[in-house]
Design a protein around this nucleic acid. Sequence first.
DNA 1: ATTAGACTTGTCAATTTTTGACAAAGTTAA
DNA 2: TTAACTTTGTCAAAAATTGACAAGTCTAAT
Lengths: 104, 104
Amino acid sequence: MRETFGEYIKRLRTENGFTLTQLAAKLDLDSANLSKIENNKREFDERRLSLLSDVFDLDLAKLRTEFFSDIIAKKIYENNCDEETLVLAEEKVAYLKSKNPITI
Amino acid sequence: MRETFGEYIKRLRTENGFTLTQLAAKLDLDSANLSKIENNKREFDERRLSLLSDVFDLDLAKLRTEFFSDIIAKKIYENNCDEETLVLAEEKVAYLKSKNPITI
DNA sequence: ATTAGACTTGTCAATTTTTGACAAAGTTAA
DNA sequence: TTAACTTTGTCAAAAATTGACAAGTCTAAT
């Protein structure tokens, strides 16, 4: 998706006609801090993802994908990581999965 | 690379015949904590990457790639992120790059 | 031009997370 | 058994993140 997680929240909010104060209340958040989140000056707390999915009736799994991909993208961007980084990361994920027993 | 960053350090260390205490001293680290790093119970501090590249005469850029890919892989693994996450992350990196002025 | 509502930014104490340091216990080989 | 090496547990100190509030900007309506 061609937007950050903050921009995504802002779009959801405005498209649904909420003010910062209104959405912040639903997310149990200070409106000033929600503003920072929307403008990529703070991170959204993972523990609020389910609240967010409730408010906008979104699929939580998709929201999580959106959320974690954002964290990863920011890390890569901020640290000027080269293109190989994600390829290597994918290999390492496979390695970790093969290495560790599947948790039931 | 089919190993975690911790395992990579451990391999470098043993292949070069160092004890934990010896390498820890070179990295300005407590040997008990280095042990934890090697066994994936603690994170290696990014600020020690250049020391590490000095000790084993490694290319710092490659080491950084190794390091950050590890962080990302762990995040994905720990949070059971789906396969799409990295694809999305890549798109978002491109978005962030297009969005922000190139810093000189 | 003033007001009201919406949004942004700055600050900082409080909470949370990570780290450094040390003790103690486990492992291995002479 | 020693001794050297490694692992694990704990916890205070340091660092990072968060919640809360004040103060600011911006816009639209009157």
